[in-house]
């Protein structure tokens, strides 16, 4: 499976990179084009204007992104046409790693999501309870995955998270006067 999945991964990666670059460039271009203040500044006076360099950079980004996307697509077509080992050997070894498991992305997304919620909870409950409410479940869950002992994970999780949050609270809010 891994040896067969080897080439498509490189092709997919190229396409994803291209899409990322193009996506960035397009979002940026839309933003510039929708700002009359920026568009009107082009070609005015001595200052080349606040829109010139963004447009140049975005243009380069779009071109580069499109080329990489095309390269990926071409590789993909090549692969599907004759997915033999001959092509695999001629292409440089870009993909050494097999793609990470889907649950890794789930973990990452879940952590990002909870951290994004954190500021809202802070405004609602205050820093300490909010940090606690984010840290405890995570520590319990990760501890459980480690040891597979639920009771121990809960106990340790609560203990460690309260220590962690307390020290953060003491350092940043009590000592450093951060207005959280």
């Amino acid at each position: 499976m891994t040896t067969l999945a080897f080439r498509p991964v490189a092709a997919w990666r190229d396409m994803a990179c291209g899409t990322l670059f193009c996506g960035f460039a397009l979002v940026g271009l839309v933003s510039v084009a929708n700002s009359p203040a920026l568009m009107n500044s082009l070609g005015q006076g001595l200052d080349p204007g606040p829109a010139l360099l963004p447009l140049v950079t975005l243009g380069l980004l779009l071109t580069g992104g499109t080329l990489i996307l095309a390269k990926g697509a071409w590789r993909w077509v090549q692969h599907t046409r004759n997915h033999g080992p001959t092509i695999a050997s001629t292409l440089p070894a870009v993909a050494e790693r097999s793609p990470p498991a889907i649950s890794q992305h789930l973990h990452a997304a879940a952590l990002l999501g909870t951290l994004a919620l954190l500021p809202n909870i802070v405004q609602w409950l205050g820093f300490f309870p909010a940090a606690l409410s984010v840290a405890t479940p995570w520590l319990v869950w990760l501890g459980y995955r480690r040891t597979r002992r639920f009771a121990q994970a809960v106990l340790l999780g609560c203990l460690i998270s309260s220590l962690l949050c307390l020290s953060l609270y003491l350092i940043f809010i009590t000592l450093l006067d951060v207005p959280l």
Partner: peptide, 12 residues
Amino acid sequence: HVLLIGIALLCV
């Protein structure tokens, strides 16, 4: 895992 969650909070 403790280090990771601690760092995440520290980042915020």
